[in-house]
Design a protein around this nucleic acid. Structure first.
Lengths: 381, 381
DNA sequence: GTTGTCGGTGAAAGCGGTTTCAGTCCGCTG
DNA sequence: CAGCGGACTGAAACCGCTTTCACCGACAAC
């Protein structure tokens, strides 16, 4: 605990202090070779006394591999991304790996940030890419380098990863509305350059269209509104959809964030949810529960956990716990959906406000999001 | 772009390929000394052809300083923490620094993770600590090491940082309720070990008490409910507060998350917000807008930005932009507060659902949270 | 015509670790 | 008692890069 201020303590100082050679200290540190009990004690004492911490750069250089896992994601404030990251972190916490974060924020702006270049620049032990589909060029380049790559929220033949079945998800949501008796069902999703973007929204729409088709319902083009991802943009799109006398009686939004936009639009038109319009979202982010949004739940945090475990496998590390098994997708029925004409305005609004636990089929998991979790556990009591 | 697969390309290979010495390549890379135009061209060509990226560990080791900024925080899924981090990231993005993330998640569990040890272990160029007050021992040890430390959401004499004036914030919230005519005002805040925890909640309470005192209002002990931080715990605490015939007509919650708990409690008691109970939160996280919560806004993302800029200063780096000036705290009036007895149940509920933009005094900033921002900008159009 | 000075370059010495290799010193076996 | 293997240790090489330092040629200054 001395640490004479200034430059950090080096292994050489420890060796000198303990009266041994540098390699011996290294052996004590890593247990890479037998060290006499007495020697070990002396070394440990010196380490403690000097407050020595091995320099991770030197160690990494020497061993030829770093201990950092590079994580690349589009935007950390995005609730879904955030939760996936949290899941990954919870796994990495149990390992000797560090986490280096690269937030692209505007991944496709000018497209100048090539994923593969970012990866190459970092020389990390492994890379996790969240919600960003690598281009073909990226894929080729990533395959050429040695460090493993794991994808989250993206399916690829080239890399392990766990995208969900978005088509099935779209079908679940649409069937729910159909089951409630809706026949005019709108869709609000991403308008995006599909060469770059995540195809999730498009696939959810495919599921939606498939179900309607199977039910013999014609899809009216003007019941589909696309806008760049975001709550406000979705609201604008939803206004087009809902500000008509022959509006749909229900809307399936490709994400919870967009569903909020739809609800906001409904509100500003004086429409009751679900009295006048039912709304279904997708993801089940934390806020969905708060607002009482009916949605298709995917286990966001679990996807991060899985990626972490898969990574450890690839790195030949022991897994701190088992790969969790979760239903991939499930409908969470809350208070933004009802049969057409089946409105109880006041009750439903009130319920919507706080997520009417009574009517909700909740599943408790080991990975509850932060809102439902106590951050500070009172100690000794 | 060849990269013969396997081991990453080294500077030696580039040097050989370009027919120059290693130092020359280094000079081209860093512009640290003049290089003949012709030579430079050859080297650049080799770098490009081989797909060379300097090994950051080797570089760091050699230069004696790393390019990573260590960020330690309590829980990344916590909206306030998340936003602060996002602000920091936006600054670091403009610099050559990498960001390594350590999420404690349960910072005080067993207290075994000493901040100073984490910092020492990483040998980073600098450290940012978000929403975690260092202990005295930590502080001493952190001061002893060379790399700068910046605090976010914590005030300290030892390190630069920008905590807000929580007492003033508590006063703002309470005065608002007082101004609406409330005389029985409850408080819901953190029950915590103040030796470890962040004193924010306690300070907000002090502000609250001060205002009531100045107004000549007696504070009834049972109008104050404390619980470990979290929405569900706050709900339970609020139930105690509100499930009485002589309940308060308004509640000031020490954070938005806790305010949501209070609203949830009110809902489950069949109380209308703000008809029967007004609720004020603190922070103005994204969700607050969504739910229409009246709250005391602090510019969370800006706090991260400031920390980033301050860090760059300490590191002697040029600042990518100016230090933003923002009002420290401001009341954002939405739809969860009203004068006692001044209820319009249906309207207010509906408004609450989506944040009734009309009645809201919004301030637009350059740092809008994700919900209000388009994540994917459609290109070429 | 000798000195500087400066652009341009390479040899070599680190940076702080790990790892190979070559011993010592033992205790055992045959 | 020679021979052997294992426990334990240190010298030295190496990881990939930066940074002196020395050197060479060219050109300006005296």
């Amino acid at each position: 605990m001395q640490e004479p201020s200034g430059r950090p303590v080096t292994i050489a100082q420890v060796a000198r202090d303990a009266g041994v050679s540098i390699p011996t200290v290294s052996r004590v540190l890593n247990g890479s070779a037998p060290v006499a009990e007495e020697t070990r004690r002396r070394v440990d004492a010196s380490i403690e006394r000097l407050g020595y911490h091995p320099n991770p750069m030197a160690r990494g250089l020497s061993r030829g591999l770093s201990d950092v896992v590079l994580v690349i994601l589009p935007n950390i404030t995005q609730p879904s991304v955030n939760l996936r990251l949290a899941g990954l972190i919870s796994v990495l916490r149990e390992t000797p790996y560090e986490l280096t974060l690269v937030d692209l924020e505007h991944p496709d702006s000018e497209r100048k940030r090539h994923l593969a270049d970012i990866v190459a620049r970092h020389h990390a032990a492994a890379t996790v890419i969240i919600s960003l589909p690598p281009s073909t060029a990226d894929t080729l380049q990533l395959l050429r380098q040695a460090a493993p790559v794991v994808l989250v929220d993206v399916r690829s033949d080239a890399f392990p990863g766990d995208g969900i079945d978005d088509i099935a998800g779209g079908m679940i949501a649409t069937r729910h509305l159909l089951g409630l008796g809706h026949r005019r069902i709108g869709f609000v999703g991403d308008a995006e350059d599909r060469f770059i973007g995540n195809p999730a929204s498009a696939n959810r729409r495919h599921g939606y269209e498939q179900v309607l088709f199977d039910a013999g319902i014609d899809i009216r083009p003007d019941d589909i509104a696309l806008a760049p991802h975001g709550m406000d943009t979705a609201k604008a799109a939803a206004l087009d959809l809902l500000d008509r006398s022959d509006r749909p009686t229900a809307v399936f939004a490709a994400s919870d964030v967009q569903a909020f936009g739809v609800m906001d639009a409904a509100r500003s038109l004086g429409l009751d949810v679900p009295g006048d319009v039912s709304v279904v979202g997708f993801d089940d982010i934390v806020t969905a529960r708060l607002v009482g949004l009916t949605t298709v739940r995917q286990h966001l945090e679990v996807s991060g956990v899985r990626a972490g475990l898969r990574l450890l496998e690839l790195l030949g590390q022991p897994l701190p716990f088992e790969m969790p098994e979760f239903p991939e997708l499930e409908l969470v029925t809350r208070s933004t959906t009802a049969s057409p004409g089946d409105a109880h305005p006041i009750r439903s609004m009130a319920a919507a406000l706080t997520g009417a636990a009574a009517s909700e089929k909740e599943v408790s998991t080991a990975f509850d999001p932060a809102f439902g979790r106590d951050e500070r556990i009172p100690r000794r009591k």
